[in-house]
Design a binder for these strands. Structure first.
Length: 355
DNA sequence: AATGCGTGGTT
DNA sequence: TAACCAAGCAT
């Protein structure tokens, strides 16, 4: 593909973007100057997360912490609480680290270069390029899942993901224009989200259909090719619903690293792959000696790399464990509970066995 | 380089 | 319905 053809792709896509760009809470209007804080916050939230899901979280964060300086002054537990339900919780921990770095080491201003941005916690190659392009209109070439797909089709790249990622980044970079690189990156992402979709792309409505090698060959819907994924195993655990005399329920704060790091959960047995827990071996992990009763039913939850099956045992009692967190149901809102914990809470509260 | 890391919508 | 997939990063 020569420079002339690339120029036409850029011009056609930008013309389409100017008429059909999506209106999004974090997106500056035509002629407005983007706020790097909003661009950064949205890009972190949008990592592996849909636009529809992010919307309410983005608005809540902006209302509560209008500037990076305000966010930098927050406690981690506050941030985890506001992030609960959004998933990939290391993003929330790194969000606060990054805000503190920007406020403390950069005078409250985000670096304007990819290299400067890349050095910050939670900002990888995609996000660094996206912020440089969108917030500072630098000729960077962010390549997310949308742009991988659009690029694979435009150039009819038939090699399998993820091996072909580097080649797709190289090809995408050849398109990046010197003028309006931020709009161009967003135009590619809008195209991937609304027209050049994964399953059944709407090629008839595509503004760059005339330039698309995959559409020409009738193989757009098949690209990019992917190797089949591994089956997800099932892990099982028993959770302990311990209710104190005043109605408060026992929770623990998970360690900062790893799965659901920094979030609160009721205590449980280890999460194990394979057979279900027997009564005796499960109760050996109980947080306190008590009259434990098994609740009816199972809580199921899907994680990225395993299915989770939970049963719940309930009892009245106390513990003097130093890391205990006690919360009454009306105060659960003050905890940072992942969605799987909310499912367990609802299951226990809906069950009439205990109370 | 491959794996661990959440959740909800779509097909 | 179960699989697929989403504005990826850290290790």
């Amino acid at each position: 593909m020569n420079a002339d053809q690339r120029g036409r792709i850029v011009a056609d896509l930008l013309a389409h973007y100017d008429r059909h760009r999506r209106v999004l809470p974090w997106r500056a209007g035509p002629g407005e100057t983007p706020d790097p804080y909003r661009v950064w916050l949205s890009e972190i939230m949008l990592q592996q997360t849909t636009v529809a899901t992010v919307g309410p979280y983005f608005r809540a964060f902006i209302e509560r912490w209008p500037t990076v300086g305000a966010l930098a002054a927050a406690d981690q537990d506050e941030v985890m609480n506001a992030w609960q339900g959004l998933g990939y919780y290391s993003r929330a921990r790194n969000l606060l680290k990054c805000a503190k770095a920007v406020a403390g080491e950069h005078g409250g201003r985000f670096p304007e270069t990819e290299a400067g941005l890349l050095a910050l916690p939670g900002i990888g190659p995609y996000t660094a390029a996206a912020i440089a392009a969108i917030a500072f209109d630098r000729p960077a070439s962010p390549v997310d899942g949308n742009i991988e797909r659009v690029t694979a089709r435009l150039f009819a790249v038939e090699d399998e993901m993820p091996g072909v990622k580097q080649e797709l980044r190289r090809l995408a970079a050849t398109l990046t224009p010197d003028r309006r690189p931020g709009d161009f990156a967003q135009a590619l992402m809008d195209l991937g989200a609304t027209i050049c979709t994964p399953r059944s792309p709407a090629c008839s409505r595509c503004p760059i259909r005339a330039h698309c090698a995959a559409a020409e060959r009738g193989i757009a819907a098949e690209l990019p090719r992917r190797a089949p994924k591994k089956a997800r195993p099932t892990r099982r655990a028993v959770f302990f619903w311990l209710v104190r005399g005043d109605g408060a329920v026992l929770f623990e704060r998970r360690p900062d690293r790893g799965l659901l790091g920094g979030m609160a959960m009721p205590p449980s047995t280890p999460w194990r792959e394979g057979e279900a827990w027997g009564e005796g071996e499960a109760l050996s992990h109980a947080p306190a000696p008590a009259q434990w009763t098994e609740l009816n039913g199972v809580v199921r939850h899907g994680f990225t790399h395993f299915h989770f099956e939970v049963t719940v045992w309930a009892a009245e009692g106390e513990t003097d464990a130093p890391d205990a967190i006690w919360a009454r149901p009306e105060d659960f809102g003050s905890l940072a509970l992942p969605t799987v914990a909310k499912k367990i809470c609802r299951h226990a509260l809906d069950d009439g066995t205990l109370l």
